[in-house]
Design a protein around this nucleic acid. Structure first.
Length: 577
DNA sequence: GCCGTTTTCGGCCCGACTGTTTTCAGTCG
């Protein structure tokens, strides 16, 4: 049982307690402990062994004893009791926007509904409208929300799947018999949702059964779905299927390409190879002339041998990508190393969790040239949004930190709320004093498309706004995008010379690749930001870069691959316009 | 559940919106 697994268990307890209607502060304790565990660098068993579990902030005697029981027995009697009281499957109902714990409780108590499917059936049968506290409007809203979830949700959001996939890969990679390990499939292609994570290991095939057995008993694994001679599929506690395939080292690079997929890409690649006198299979690239497999040093070499530019996984689709690789017309996609700074960051001045200084140091360590501190504005009460006076005070602190870290340019910015009427949450005379203004929507998500679009367009017309953050407002698997005409938004951004954000948080990935590509085609510039609320999340930039790659963005399209001098010119041009 | 210059009990992040009430509970960010 490792940190993340215990973290998931605490999250389950928190959900079940919520549905039960338990003390909200007790629930928060479990949630905070879950977060602590998920982010703890050291293995929790080390704290246990040293008898210092309760020295961790938020871990008291009750939580410590639960952690002990989990580490000791792999079980938790308290959770088992809770599950008897509250079916764990009810948790999935919490994912429906508009349904909270109380409503789940009501629906379960009166109708015995447990699954999403049953909930939808109950809504269709008009059984929800008669429940206490619910009516026809709620019933319709719930039905609508489930429909949106149905069409949106196919698997686990990328961020959750990738975290576990890479951790499992690292563990397998440490086995002495494993020569190479890679994450392939949907995770490698950075699909927004992952149905099955795929790990590929290269090893001497005499050792396969040991590797498969070790993997099957790894942390996270709940049960083995299938086991064959060189592969095993398991189901993780988090609900994700993971397949591990072991191949001979000589077949690693072709197998990696095959298992990265998608199938249409592989088929077109094989066809292309055949037309050029090769046979391409997962086990190797063969020349018809000699019949021997060619020795490949990398997946890149496979593409080059076929006379193609290397196609990054994010761009692999079917026929067009192979043709573009042949014609040399693939975009020169950007890499995480080309990102020079992060322009959307939160600190403990609002709802971030670190000081300006510690975030700035972490950014400097990543080699960034610049960052922008962009905390929330005043109306976002829960996030302790900043009013004008606190922004001025924050600017002072930023100036002080600049002196400590002279190599990093720290911009004084804000993420100002676009209020439901299209006004910004801070007056222009305040915005005009800042180095960077990000605008975004955090309220009134249910406005109709016309109202929402005009609201955002109004914000883009404000001369002091530089960037529109997370333009669609979606949260993957949790909240659909609000109703907005993004074509109009992109057009307005073009007109006003404003920058659209690709929000890298794996919960958002917003804009997505489709809209980012549309923006690029209209000549609108984009920025890849993390929206990080602590230093650890600066690493999320990689997800945003993947969105940009899938969209075919190049250096010229993404402003935070530019040096600051060029950025300033862009800003000046927009202000003069 | 945790925590403590409020120290063994009482506080713990807050306000708007919505749909359901007929004065407010539930949800959300």
């Amino acid at each position: 049982m490792n940190n993340l697994e215990i973290s998931w268990i605490f999250l389950e307890i928190a959900d079940l307690l919520e549905i039960k209607g338990d003390n909200p502060f007790k629930i928060r304790s479990y949630q905070q402990a879950a977060r602590l565990l998920a982010e703890l660098d050291e293995d929790i068993s080390v704290y246990w062994a040293n008898g210092c579990l309760t020295e961790l902030p938020g871990i008291g005697p009750a939580l410590a004893s639960k952690i002990e029981e989990l580490l000791d027995t792999g079980q938790l009697s308290y959770l088992n009791e809770l599950r008897r009281e509250v079916p764990a499957q009810l948790r999935q109902l919490l994912a429906v926007p508009g349904i909270g714990p109380k409503t789940v409780h009501t629906i379960y108590k009166h109708l015995g509904v447990i699954t999403l499917k049953e909930l939808k059936a109950a809504a269709c049968a008009q059984q929800l409208r008669d429940l206490p506290g619910l009516g026809t409007k709620s019933e319709l809203a719930i039905k609508h929300a489930i429909d949106l979830l149905d069409s949106d949700r196919q698997g686990l959001p990328l961020g959750e799947a990738a975290t576990v996939a890479y951790e499992l890969a690292e563990a397998i990679g440490q086995l002495p018999s494993v020569v190479r390990i890679a994450v392939a499939g949907e995770v490698r292609r950075r699909e927004e949702f992952v149905q099955e994570a795929l790990l590929l290991a290269a090893a001497n095939l005499n050792n396969v059964s040991d590797i498969l057995t070790t993997f099957s008993s790894a942390p996270y694994v709940r049960k083995i779905i299938s086991m064959e001679k060189n592969k095993v599929t398991v189901l993780l506690g988090i609900g994700l299927h993971v397949q591990l395939v072991v191949v001979d080292p000589s077949a690693f690079h072709t197998s990696l390409c095959y298992f990265t997929g998608p199938l249409a890409h592989w088929e077109n690649l094989s066809l292309w190879a055949k037309q050029r006198g090769f046979e391409l299979t997962a086990s190797g690239l063969f020349s018809y002339n000699c019949g021997q497999p060619l020795t490949l040093q990398s997946e890149e070499e496979l593409y080059h041998r076929l006379g193609l530019m290397f196609i990054v996984p994010e761009l692999r689709s079917g026929r067009e990508d192979v043709l573009a690789a042949a014609n040399g017309t693939l975009p020169q996609v950007i890499t995480p190393e080309q990102i020079r700074g992060d322009l959307h960051l939160h600190t403990n001045w609002s709802d971030g969790r670190e000081s300006i200084a510690s975030l700035a140091k972490a950014a400097a360590q990543r080699g960034y040239e610049y960052i922008a501190i962009t905390d929330h504005s005043q109306s976002l009460k829960i996030a302790h949004g900043l009013d004008a006076a606190r922004l001025i005070a924050q600017a002072q602190e930023i100036r002080a930190v600049r002196e400590q870290i002279p190599d990093l340019l720290i911009l004084s910015g804000v993420e100002v709320d676009i209020l439901p009427n299209g006004q910004l949450d801070l007056p222009n005379d305040v915005l005009s004093q800042l180095d960077l203004v990000i605008a975004s929507v955090h309220s009134g998500f249910k406005q109709d498309q016309e109202t929402m679009t005009q609201r955002i367009v109004a914000a883009l017309r404000n001369p002091y706004v530089d960037i529109l953050a997370h333009p669609s407002g979606r949260l993957l698997g949790r909240r659909p995008a609000y109703q907005v005409d993004l074509d109009m938004v992109i057009n307005e951004a073009k007109l006003q010379g404003k920058i659209l954000e690709i929000n890298s948080s794996p919960e958002r990935l917003d804009l997505n690749a489709k809209w980012a590509a549309k923006a690029k085609n209209l000549g609108v510039k984009l920025v890849i930001n993390t929206d990080a609320h602590d230093a650890r999340r600066l690493a999320d930039i990689e997800y945003g870069v993947s969105v940009a790659r899938r969209a075919g963005l190049e250096i010229g399209d993404v402003i935070n691959t530019w040096p600051m001098t060029k950025l300033k010119e862009l800003r000046k041009k927009a202000c003069d316009a």
